[in-house]
Design a protein around this nucleic acid. Structure first.
Length: 376
RNA sequence: GUGGGUAUAGCUUAGUUGGUUAAAGCGCCAGUUUGUGGCACUGGAGACCGUCGGUUCGAAUCCGACUAUCCACC
């Protein structure tokens, strides 16, 4: 249930209520692909880093430990000890990211497991069944994330198929939610807008899926190599056709500035591996830009990662210590880096929400852009 | 003390019958990462080849002495 609280320009401040709690938006989802945020961060840590909602992956959990195993253990919430909202990605992106191994047909996609190479099939019904077994709060529709660049004709045929897949997803989810032993009988379904970088196809597709009255609408297939300006233009083009009374989710995006720009255009929800993956490689976000904590210049730096940050890591540990841990390959270094970066993202979203609450988002937006010195 | 082996980048090593600019891994330095195939990838710096002398047009490579170190024996 999406409840709009305030708007400023196209930017929206809202609450999205779910069976597992209310998400204050704009919000960032913390990526926990296999049921855990990479870097030894457990559900016990999530409040400390201001996490509201996690994203887990259908494909990965299907392969290991298996969605039926998770169901027998009571679903993802009980399994991971996280009581808040969980969104599961449908596996559609893996079709794209494992492109060499795929074979896309009308019924679904045949591809090889990245773990043991065995052939697997996933179509809309399978994806919904897996996500139902996982018992996530929100299921994503099974879509095709089209490569960039893609020919116009291929894109047109692909999004027509993605619409047919979406209709099958909706039907299957209704069936699964009515079954006696379903873990979450109120599981929600988000549709995904595709259409590569063709505005007319994007708009046509959004108009079509808007009529299906889904619980939320995602924009997928962006930030896959096209310039950021192109991404912003596509979001701006599609935004007027996304239902006003439904949450909007920009999939896989992005940098702090990407997110700020997208909020400005009217997006509510984000996810991205950037904060956690960058952290694992020592790249830490600060209000004055990214620092690489492994750099030699931090060897004797007794200050905190970000002097303006009040996360648990910055309240306690020095740059020199975290650099030492990262250089030594200590797991704690990675853990502290990931926690800091996720806090940075979650805190950024909180600042955006506060600015919207106070009617000062425009000023915040311009200020933040100036700090980073560029739009991208 | 005697006999034998070894000595090449910070470390561990490769280097053809002597032939242009001595190679690799690790480490070091820096960069990349956008619905995650988690310790990755890309690039860079760094060696007058133990020391001194000899043979040769030419020596990391062959010869001698010295030094260091390892093994065996006393």
């Amino acid at each position: 249930m999406y409840k709009l609280l305030k708007t400023e320009g196209n930017a929206r401040r809202a609450e999205f209520s779910t069976p597992h709690g209310t998400i204050q938006t704009p919000a960032f989802m913390n990526v926990a692909t296999c049921g855990a945020i990479k870097g030894a961060v457990s559900a016990l840590d999530l409040k400390d880093i201001k996490c509201q909602v996690q994203l887990c992956n259908t494909y990965h959990l299907h392969l290991r430990p298996g969605d039926k195993v998770v169901k027998q253990l009571g679903g993802l919430h009980k399994f991971t000890r996280w009581e808040g909202p969980i969104l599961t990605d449908s596996g559609g992106f893996q079709v794209f990211s494992l492109a060499k191994l795929r074979n896309i047909k009308e019924e679904g996609v045949y591809f090889s497991s990245h773990i043991d190479g065995r052939k697997i099939f996933m179509g809309p019904e399978e994806s919904m069944q897996i996500q139902s077994n996982l018992g996530s709060t929100i299921a994503m529709a099974f879509d095709e994330c089209i490569e960039n660049p893609a020919p116009y004709d291929y894109t047109k045929k692909s999004i027509e198929r993605t619409v047919r897949w979406l209709e099958r997803c909706k039907k299957e989810m209704a069936r699964l939610n009515s079954l006696e032993d379903t873990i979450n009988k109120e599981q929600m379904l988000f549709g995904i807008n595709q259409g590569s970088t063709y505005k007319d196809l994007r708009i046509d597709h959004m108009k079509t899926i808007a009529e299906l009255d889904l619980d939320g609408y995602a924009i997928g297939g962006l930030a896959v190599g096209e310039p950021a300006e192109v991404m912003y233009e596509i979001i701006e083009a599609v935004e007027p056709y996304a239902p006003k009374n439904k949450i909007r989710y920009l999939m896989g995006v992005g940098t702090p500035v990407n997110i700020l720009e997208a909020v400005y255009i009217g997006v509510d929800l984000f996810d991205c591996v950037m904060p956690s993956r960058n952290a694992r490689h020592g790249h830490l976000f600060t209000k004055s830009g990214i620092i690489n904590i492994s750099n030699a210049k931090y060897e004797l730096d007794d200050s905190h990662i970000d002097s303006q940050c009040d996360c648990p890591v910055c309240r306690n540990f020095s740059r020199a210590y975290i650099r030492h841990l990262m250089k030594s390959g200590e797991m704690l270094g990675m853990r502290l880096a990931v926690m800091h970066n996720l806090y940075f993202y979650n805190n950024l979203m909180e600042e955006i929400r506060t600015a919207l609450d106070q009617g000062e988002f425009e000023a915040y937006y311009r200020h933040y852009r100036d700090i980073l010195g560029k739009r991208i």
